[in-house]
Design a protein around this nucleic acid. Sequence first.
DNA 1: TCTGGGGTCCTAGGACCC
DNA 2: TCTGGGGTCCTAGGACCC
Length: 421
Amino acid sequence: MSARFALVDCNNFYASCERVFDPRLVGRPVAVLSNNDGCVIARSEEVKRLGIPMGAPAHEHKEVFRRNGVVVLSSNYALYGDMSARVMETLRPNVPAMEVYSIDEAFLALEGWQGVEFARELRARVRQWTGIPVSIGIGPTKTLAKIANRLAKKTPELGGVLDLGMVRDLDELLSGIPCGDIWGIGRRLALRLEGWGVRTALDLKQAEAARVRKSLGVVGERIQRELQGVSCLALEELPAPRKGIASAKSFGRPVETLVELEEALATYTARAAEKLRSGGLLAGCLHVFVSTNPFSRQRPQYHAGAQACLRVPTNHTPHLIDAALGLLRGLYRPAYHYKKTGVFVTELVAEGDRQPDLFEDAAEISRRRSVDALVDGLNRRLGRNAIRYASMGLDAKWAMRQGNRSKRFTTSWEELPVARA
DNA sequence: TCTGGGGTCCTAGGACCC
DNA sequence: TCTGGGGTCCTAGGACCC
């Protein structure tokens, strides 16, 4: 028997996480917003039925939210990240191999005997142990497992599980899937395909291979093969080493002064440095960018970026902040309304593989390391940015909006849920 | 007034080398 | 007067994902 994949996908993940800790939300429409309370990034079924699309700007739907009693929440990534880990650890022991694909999805490799019955049990276990509802799709390739998952989620009669191996007429099923719903085909490629009459997954499966290759490149070729049942995308159990770490955020209100931009960028850079250290990595180069609000019609636009490489790769916060602020000063132009700035560190190397610097002073390096470790430790215990560098500022008037975030129920002692009996 | 953040991979074109 | 072809590396930009 050839390989089979299962895709486990949490239903309305962020909204479901919120419901686990606030049962009053069950049965009520729940929408979770992106950082800065900007877009809708998770919707309960009730919100989907109201016709609110994924990614919709929240402010355009305020009235619908109000009329329908939609509970609108800011995103709470500390909670979602922790719930995700619980779901993944519930799944892992049951299968020979697993790939954590995103915060709310995992691909599983299945043994020959593991089919619909197994998937139903797994689904029930995740529900019982974590409170999160999931859907499971099974197919001979990752792309087909994705399609099966989608259908399992959309078709309540299936009870959350669909194995394409049990489907009598697969082509008929594929003829009901628009190209844009296939994993890896986005809006642009769907439009390109439509241009030559390829509208459904079945059309793409049966299209002339040379033409697919020419028009969509190797990516399209792989998708077509996967639709034909030939597995081209392997299960990746170990995450690939990271190539870069980004830290960037929009401001809660327009920012004009260099001082405020500097505070924000120093804050994001400190965050990037923390991520480097937690991954045991050093950065060789960094890019800094600034931009105005691309949606603003009245204000003049300005988008700029600059890159620099460090003499020696580092993850020491002050060094990275210095380099980032140096670049920012070169980019800054007065009189613009800035909306966003950020840093992207690249040329990552593992701390252990570091080339010793001829001129370095070992005592100085170990001193820096202990300062960073101390800061990380305190911030872990007391909350992010409890200890900070002066350049990060104190009051963060530019900080993003987070009007209605739930508590960090599972990751902060102060915010543990309280039960009264 | 208000539109996220963090990633990946692929391609095309230019520079450079032999 | 004649003036190739192929390889590699880098970068910018496009497209996608959740």
